[in-house]
């Protein structure tokens, strides 16, 4: 099964792009339906059987809409922002392994790579906030920036704990080194990582940057048409990436019965569970105030993550 290198690269790129375009839609559709039923509604029912094509219809609607650039906007920054928000998740998706063999770009230190790349996405939000020429956008963008600075630290610390336990920075290596009792050993780190991931995605309860009652729609206020759709897509692509990353780091990725053949299925299943949990939080919980949000990061998450790191260090020295 030896393919020429160029063919292999193109094939992998196409597969990753296909996954990047379908998985966020699947998450979005799941959110529509799960949220509706959790609120006693049915959700979209008209576009296809049980509204299965609702997001396709939405996409067609977005394409038809006028793409307005405000006169006060910093034109190029404004136009470029949606792409900057979206592309990093595509790159991150390529480096996350679905099984030992199913990884598009198996770079060394892929954990570092994925974390670094996903952090670039926030620049899109900041650019949107700054470039829109709108005070609400600016405030929202600054909130998003502050949120990222606060939550990146506990997230990286929690990820570092797993890397320390596995003795490698490669995601494939981490998932292979994982065993079931890490679920307990790395539990505080896992919780910190999950909370920080939700905060970084600016999802409820950490959606102060787009708090509609305060800043309209934050950095995305001035966007319409495809630009707006790209930001939405980036949000759901972010959920996909973070769920997969959480699965690989804390849930053992593709480990499970018959993982040799069913590996990717296990990854997908676990990641789906994590994604649904992230969606569930949005439906069940209220929004956290801006100061509470910062307090949670610095007073709770960072200390817990540091304790977890120490715990992992002790564990590695004692058992390793």
């Amino acid at each position: 099964m030896e393919l020429p290198l160029t063919v292999e690269i193109i094939l992998k790129a196409v597969v990753v792009l296909a996954a990047f375009l379908t998985l966020p839609l699947a998450i979005g559709q799941t959110e529509h339906k799960v949220m509706a039923h959790m609120q006693g509604r049915l959700g979209p029912m008209e576009a296809g059987p049980h509204g299965i094509a609702q997001l396709v219809a939405d996409g067609i609607k977005f394409v038809q809409k006028e793409d307005v650039t405000p006169a006060a906007a910093d034109r190029w920054v404004f136009r470029l922002a949606p792409a900057v928000a979206l592309i990093p998740y595509l790159v991150a998706l390529a480096a996350i392994p679905w099984s030992a063999a199913w990884v598009a770009a198996d770079v060394p230190a892929s954990l570092l790579f994925v974390l670094a790349v996903t952090s670039v996405g926030i620049f899109g939000t900041l650019m949107a906030g700054w470039g829109s020429g709108n005070k609400y956008s600016l405030v929202g963008g600054m909130r998003a920036g502050a949120q990222l600075v606060s939550y990146e630290l506990p997230m990286v610390l929690a990820a570092a704990s797993v890397a320390l336990a596995a003795g490698t920075l490669s995601l494939t290596g981490i998932a292979q080194a994982w065993s079931w009792w890490w679920l307990l050993w790395q539990l505080p780190g896992a919780l910190v990582f999950l909370i920080a991931a939700v905060a970084e995605l600016q999802r409820v309860p950490f959606d102060a940057p787009i708090a509609d009652a305060e800043v309209v729609f934050g950095p995305y206020t001035e966007y319409s048409g495809l630009g707006f759709a790209f930001f939405l897509l980036a949000e759901y692509a972010g959920i996909v990436v973070m769920s997969l990353l959480f699965t690989v780091l804390f849930l053992g990725g593709w480990s499970g019965p018959w993982s040799d053949t069913l590996g990717p299925v296990w990854t997908l299943l676990k990641a789906t569970m994590v994604a649904i949990l992230i969606l569930w939080l949005r439906i069940a919980w209220p929004r956290v105030r801006e100061d509470q949000l910062q307090r949670l990061a610095w007073v709770v998450l960072v200390p817990v993550a540091l304790v977890q790191l120490a715990l992992t260090g002790v564990g590695v020295v004692v058992w390793g």
């Binding site: 509706a36 039923h37 959790m38 609120q39 006693g40 069940a284």
Partner: peptide, 21 residues
């Protein structure tokens, strides 16, 4: 309170919707 929110939404998910099409 957070647990209660999750429980309530989960319970609603398990029940049929109130919507009439």
């Amino acid at each position: 309170g957070l647990g209660k929110g999750l429980a309530t939404t989960a319970r609603t998910l398990a029940r049929p919707a109130h919507t009439r099409q």
